[in-house]
Amino acid sequence: MFILRNIVLLTLTAVPTSLLAQEAPIPAIAEACASCHQLDRSEGNTAHAAPPLFYAGNKYRQEWLEQWLQAPYRLRPAGGFFADHVITEDGIDSVDEASLQDHMAVDSSKAADIADWLMSLTPMDDLLAASSDYQPGSVSPRMGAMDFVKFKGCGGCHRDTPEYGGLSGPELYTAWQRLQPQFIVSFIKDPRAWNPDSAMPSRGLNDGQIHKLADYLKILTNED
């Protein structure tokens, strides 16, 4: 019995925590999420309908999740995967607004429970830890905007104000409120290490360049 128990303990300690996290069952309260979001790392995200959530606890800020779930607003002007929401006429693409679905809203109690559960999904701790040396800093709005739009070209796909920027990527003027700073840095460094289906390329930027972009997202929120 003693030997058997030790074998079980050894086996459990040998299994990476990420695998244990994947095996956790989806609670009833979050079952509806699975119709659009990838909740299990092994599922793949080929449908592109919505961002994968299996690493939500490594990505989002809990207070933002709770508020957003009660009053969701559109983060991706062209939906989860832009090509599914585009109409082409005479070679010109435009967003097919009628094809975009609004996210369901839930009451405050449900929002708190779902946010709690989502924040427990942290299979990417190691990847996130690789960006732990980022200390949010400051950048002048003018220089930050110039870097974001003209030098790095991020504005081609992302909006840094409600009026300015591309449509295929999520808007970034609320990014600092919704995302953990280390996630922002890690995702810019290698988007497909997080989501292999992301349409965002890794640019091969160094840490200093990435930190500057993250600092620009910070000042967009007017937070100290």
């Binding site: 832009f82 070679g91 010109i92 693409d93 967003v95 081609g156 796909c157 449509l167 295929s168």
Partner: peptide, 12 residues
Amino acid sequence: QCHGLEGSGKGI
């Protein structure tokens, strides 16, 4: 996303 679904250079 930039070059267009038909490659015309007129993506969203």
